[in-house]
């Protein structure tokens, strides 16, 4: 290839190797989940937050744990319940008798990777405390803003079937999650390997960090630098416009969704070791990005609508 076309923002080979090793390691724990794991990494590199929607027991928490360990990030987990209060997440100012002043006691949110388990079990007030932090990258307590550590990556889970006593996230809040994925049951082969293989928790304990916070920040920078040509931007715009004009869709994709789509497609290209984005990258992440953002006009499955959009919008 000509010199002109060579890489501008290719991940330097060391970081690149570590990224591949990290993905491989998570793949070892979660057998046969290559695609969702790549999605999770794309979400991380694109600087978004991840919503995992699935029935219990398919490995949502294992995924979060494996990611935290592999990425070398500080990890906290919050089990959301209906009596959880915002301060239980963010932290609280307590009076320090020694200094005679209020001292801020950091909540679990001050972590680099936060697992918000069963996010839909908490009240909307508590949910919004978390979502605000996700959007701003900081929390404000007693008038003082406190920056969250970088990188800050939230993996939230919810169970789509067991809806009793839950507060489903409103559409506006769903928009704050860049990607929504589901893990699904493993296929027969993966299930057998799961049954015969080592205990997952033992594997998790043995795992070593493959990346670090600074690595991730570098990779994020590199993802942002991946080329998106005019032709690709045309395609992204066409998809977003089509979602707004589709007769079966009441509310289409927001500009934020368009940005997320582009960022995620770039990250996907980076994962594919490419420094330019292809329509295939956009297509790969589109359903995960648009599925939870499209509001259907009729009683239609959102993922089906996203799929339909993908099948009708022309690619150059």
């Amino acid at each position: 290839m000509d010199q002109n076309f060579t890489v501008a923002a290719k991940a330097d080979s060391l970081t690149r190797q570590r990224l591949d090793a990290a993905i491989a390691q998570v793949n070892e724990v979660l057998v046969g989940k290559n695609q969702p794991i790549r999605m999770a990494f794309a979400c991380l590199l694109a600087g978004g937050h991840l919503l995992v929607e699935d029935v219990p027991g398919v490995g949502k928490t294992t995924l979060a744990h494996a990611l935290a360990t592999t990425l070398g990030l500080s990890f906290r987990r919050i089990q959301f319940t209906s009596d959880l209060l915002p301060t239980d997440i963010v932290g609280v100012s307590v009076f320090d008798r020694d200094s005679g002043a209020f001292r801020f006691q950091q909540g679990p949110i001050f972590a680099q990777l936060l697992l918000a388990d069963e996010i839909n079990r908490a009240t909307p007030k508590t949910q919004s405390a978390l979502l605000e932090a996700m959007a701003e990258g900081q929390v404000t307590v007693d008038g003082a803003s406190r920056a969250l550590p970088e990188p800050f990556f939230v993996v939230a889970t919810q169970n789509p079937l067991d809806m009793a006593g839950t507060y489903p996230l409103p559409d506006s809040q769903l928009d704050r999650f860049m990607l929504r994925i589901s893990l699904d049951y493993p296929d027969a082969d993966a299930e057998r390997r799961l049954l015969t293989g080592e205990d997952r928790s033992a594997m998790l304990e043995r795992m070593a960090a493959r990346l670090s916070g600074p690595d991730i920040m570098t990779l994020r920078r590199q993802a942002r630098a991946v080329t998106a040509s005019p032709a690709l931007l045309d395609y992204v715009q066409a998809l977003v416009t089509a979602s707004r004009k589709h007769p079966d869709i009441r509310t289409g994709l927001s500009p934020r969704a368009g940005l997320a789509l582009l960022a995620c497609a770039r990250a996907w290209a980076l994962l594919g070791d490419r420094n330019y984005t292809l329509p295939e990258d956009v297509q790969a992440v589109f359903v995960a990005i648009a599925g939870h953002r499209l509001i259907p006009a009729r009683n239609l499955a959102r993922d089906t609508l996203a799929q339909a959009l993908l099948e009708t919008v022309a690619v150059e």
Binding site: M1, D2, F5, T227, P230, Y276, L278
Partner: peptide, 18 residues
């Protein structure tokens, strides 16, 4: 394939020579 993808998606403006 490689040529097309690079020309179309890796450059803002496909170089005329290529």
């Amino acid at each position: 394939s490689t040529e097309y993808l690079v020309l179309r998606y890796a450059c803002a403006e496909p170089p005329p020579e290529q």
